[in-house]
Design a protein around this nucleic acid. Structure first.
Lengths: 190, 190
DNA sequence: TGGTGGTCTTGTCAATGACAAGTTACGATC
DNA sequence: GATCGTAACTTGTCATTGACAAGACCACCA
C-alpha cells in the first residue's frame, strides 16, 4: 500500500511525487487486464488515487499518454534486443519474449492510430530499436540480401508474436511461446 | 444516393430495408478513416440516416457489431484464399492482398478484445479460413513438417501484413505490398 | 520571507454506449 | 382485405468518458 493508494480524504500528500511514472505503470496493468480499447484516463486516475484530471496534466490527453507509453516500449525493446547479442535466432526469440512479457507495450506500439506517431521522442525511440534489429541481421553470415532478409526475419517474428497475443493460434501449439518461436524462426535458416 | 442518405424529416421510409448490411459497410468505411478505436455506433447511425439506437437493435451492442464484422472478414478471407489455388506462395500473397484491400476487416479480426471470440458464428468462420490456409501448406511439396511449416508461413505473411498496415516498415520498402510480400515469402522456400 | 511555477483539484460540457419504453409497418393467417 | 403478431426503428434517459477552464496547494529558490 503506497501513499497514492489512500483515499482522497486521508493524509495523502497533495503532490504525488512520481505520478507520471506511476501512471505509465498503471497503464500497462490496465491494458493487460482489458486491452487498449478499454483504457480510461479516469480509471487510471482512480487506481493511482488522484483526481480525474491529473493524468491530463502530465500527458496532455489520451494520445499523449499512449505516445509516452509507446516510447517506453520501444526503449525497452531496444534494450532487450541488445541484450540478445549478435545471433539472429536469439534476437528473434528475444523479440517474441518481449511481446509476451510486455504485451501491453507491444499492443500499443504497433497501433499508430492510438497515439502520435510523429512525436519526435517516439521517432527516435523507434529508430533505436529498429537499428538494433537490423544490425543483428547484417551480422548474420547467411545474409545475402540484407534488406530482404531483415524484412523476412522481422515479419516472421512479428507475425508469430502477434498471432500468439491475439490467441489466434490453434490449441495444438503448446504453452511455451519462446520454444515454439525458436522452431518457427529456424525454418528461415534451413 | 440511396434512400437512407436522406435526412430524418424527409420521406425516408420508416424501415430502412437493409440496415444491417448498410451498417456493416459503413463500419468498414469508418474504420478505414480513423481506425477501430474511434468507431462510434452513433456515428454509424448518422451516416446511415437512422436513429442513434438503431444499430443496437441489429447487433445488441458494439461488441456484437464487431463480432458480425469479424465474421464477414473471415468469410471474405476464406474466399480470397480459396481463389488463390494450391500454390503456397500465391496463397501467402493473397493473404497480404486481403489485409491491404480489406484493412478494416483485418484490423478487427485479430483484435479479440474488441468482439466476442467465442461466438459460434465467429468460431465457424475462423475455422473455415484456417482450413483453407492449412490446406495450402499441406499441398506444398516441400512440407516436411506441415504443422511447423504452416505456422512459419502464416507468421511471415501475417507479420508482413501487420507491419505494412501499421506503417512500421521503413520508407525504403516500396509502394507495392504484393510484390514486396512475394520477395519476402520466397525467402521461406530457398 | 515572499514569490514563482509546476503539480494537482474541482467543476463543467459535449459525446458516447447502453437500456427502457413506445411507435410504425411488414407479412402471415384467416 | 382486415386483423394481429412481431420485427424494425424511434425517442428519451442515464452513467461514464475525454477534454478543457479555473483555481488551490506546495516545493523550491532568491
Amino acid at each position: 500500500m503506497t501513499s497514492y493508494d489512500r483515499g482522497m480524504t486521508s493524509n495523502r500528500p497533495y503532490h504525488h511525487g512520481d505520478l507520471r511514472r506511476a501512471l505509465l505503470a498503471t497503464t500497462a496493468e490496465a491494458i493487460r487486464e482489458a486491452g487498449p480499447a478499454a483504457l480510461s484516463l479516469r480509471d487510471l486516475a482512480r487506481r493511482a488515487g488522484v483526481s480525474h484530471a491529473a493524468p491530463a496534466h502530465h500527458f496532455g490527453d489520451k494520445a499523449g499518454l499512449l505516445t509516452a507509453f509507446a516510447v517506453e516500449g520501444y526503449d525497452l525493446l531496444a534494450e532487450e534486443l541488445g541484450r540478445a547479442g549478435d545471433d539472429l535466432l536469439e534476437i528473434g526469440v528475444a523479440y517474441v519474449r518481449f511481446a509476451v512479457e510486455h504485451r501491453a507495450h507491444f499492443e500499443v506500439m504497433f497501433r499508430p492510430d492510438l497515439y502520435r506517431p510523429d512525436d519526435p521522442a517516439l521517432v527516435a525511440a523507434r529508430a533505436r530499436s529498429g537499428a538494433t534489429l537490423h544490425g543483428g541481421v547484417a551480422a548474420h553470415p547467411a545474409a545475402s540480401a540484407p534488406d530482404r532478409d531483415a524484412l523476412a526475419a522481422w515479419s516472421i517474428v512479428h507475425g508469430f508474436a502477434t498471432l500468439w497475443l491475439a490467441g489466434a493460434l490453434p490449441p495444438g501449439v503448446g504453452g511455451d511461446p519462446e520454444a515454439t518461436a525458436r522452431q518457427v524462426i529456424r525454418r528461415l535458416f534451413e
